[in-house]
Simulated assay, not measured.
Amino acid sequence: MSSASSGRPAGARDRDSAGRARNARPRDGLGRPLPYGADGVPRQPEGVVRTPEETVAEAQALLDAGRPFHAHEVFEDAWKSGPEAERALWRGLAQLAVGLTHAARGNVTGGARLLRRGAGALEEWVADTGRRTPHGMDPSALVTWARELADAVEPGAPHAVDAAAQAPRLSGGR
């Protein structure tokens, strides 16, 4: 679709109120961009500062709804706004959500790679901090979930995984 047919002037870029480039295209439940004017799912607002408990609850609701890309955005906000000591935790969780997103989109190689990267990040964070249940979550169970899903999809799943059916339980794995 050309800029002219999208209702935007040729060469125009989506910008936020501060002038930063932002993609305003609607997205589907797995975060794939849709054509301008299409009905998409509500996007997660960027830069929201939440308590860790709010982050976990909102991300879990999105994962349960089969929207791991959007859960990744919630984790990314926590990673960017949270205390330095927890950034690796939230970044690892974001990687798990993106890994599930890729597996659900049918990119099993990328999905498996990101699931393993996120699992490694969580293991490293626990080893570095000694915290076994941050904010009620069970990183050990999440590591197991991520590695099992990566092993299941890596050989080439016959089709994309169902993101909602494969979603982890943040407070205890699946």
Score class of each variant (00 low, 15 high):
residue 2 S to H: 13
residue 2 S to E: 15
residue 6 S to C: 00
residue 9 P to D: 07
residue 17 S to N: 10
residue 19 G to N: 06
residue 23 N to T: 14
residue 24 A to H: 08
residue 25 R to S: 09
residue 26 P to I: 08
residue 27 R to S: 01
residue 27 R to W: 07
residue 29 G to T: 07
residue 30 L to V: 07
residue 33 P to H: 05
residue 34 L to W: 03
residue 35 P to V: 15
residue 35 P to T: 12
residue 38 A to L: 01
residue 39 D to I: 07
residue 39 D to G: 03
residue 40 G to F: 00
residue 43 R to V: 13
residue 44 Q to L: 09
residue 45 P to T: 14
residue 45 P to Q: 13
residue 46 E to K: 15
residue 47 G to I: 08
residue 52 P to S: 13
residue 53 E to M: 13
residue 54 E to H: 01
residue 54 E to W: 08
residue 55 T to S: 10
residue 55 T to K: 05
residue 55 T to L: 03
residue 55 T to Q: 00
residue 60 Q to M: 12
residue 61 A to E: 12
residue 64 D to P: 01
residue 64 D to V: 08
residue 64 D to M: 06
residue 66 G to W: 01
residue 67 R to I: 11
residue 67 R to D: 08
residue 67 R to A: 14
residue 67 R to Y: 12
residue 70 H to W: 00
residue 70 H to E: 02
residue 71 A to D: 04
residue 72 H to K: 05
residue 74 V to Y: 01
residue 75 F to C: 12
residue 76 E to W: 05
residue 76 E to K: 00
residue 76 E to R: 05
residue 77 D to P: 15
residue 77 D to C: 15
residue 80 K to N: 11
residue 81 S to A: 15
residue 82 G to Y: 04
residue 83 P to C: 12
residue 84 E to L: 15
residue 84 E to W: 14
residue 84 E to I: 14
residue 85 A to K: 06
residue 85 A to G: 09
residue 88 A to L: 14
residue 88 A to S: 12
residue 89 L to S: 03
residue 89 L to F: 15
residue 89 L to C: 09
residue 90 W to T: 01
residue 90 W to I: 04
residue 91 R to F: 07
residue 93 L to F: 03
residue 99 G to I: 00
residue 102 H to K: 15
residue 103 A to K: 04
residue 105 R to G: 14
residue 109 T to S: 11
residue 113 R to Q: 14
residue 115 L to E: 00
residue 115 L to T: 04
residue 116 R to G: 06
residue 116 R to I: 02
residue 117 R to N: 09
residue 118 G to N: 00
residue 119 A to C: 09
residue 119 A to N: 04
residue 120 G to S: 09
residue 121 A to I: 05
residue 122 L to W: 06
residue 123 E to W: 13
residue 128 D to R: 14
residue 130 G to A: 11
residue 131 R to E: 11
residue 132 R to W: 13
residue 133 T to F: 12
residue 134 P to G: 13
residue 135 H to Q: 01
residue 139 P to K: 06
residue 139 P to T: 02
residue 140 S to R: 10
residue 141 A to T: 07
residue 142 L to D: 07
residue 144 T to K: 05
residue 144 T to S: 03
residue 145 W to D: 01
residue 145 W to S: 03
residue 146 A to K: 07
residue 147 R to D: 10
residue 147 R to P: 05
residue 149 L to C: 06
residue 150 A to P: 07
residue 151 D to M: 03
residue 151 D to A: 10
residue 152 A to S: 14
residue 152 A to K: 11
residue 153 V to H: 01
residue 154 E to C: 10
residue 155 P to L: 07
residue 155 P to Y: 04
residue 155 P to H: 08
residue 156 G to K: 10
residue 158 P to Y: 08
residue 159 H to G: 07
residue 160 A to S: 12
residue 163 A to S: 08
residue 163 A to I: 00
residue 164 A to T: 01
residue 164 A to S: 05
residue 165 A to V: 09
residue 168 P to V: 02
residue 168 P to I: 03
residue 169 R to G: 08
residue 169 R to H: 10
residue 170 L to W: 00
residue 172 G to L: 03
residue 174 R to S: 05
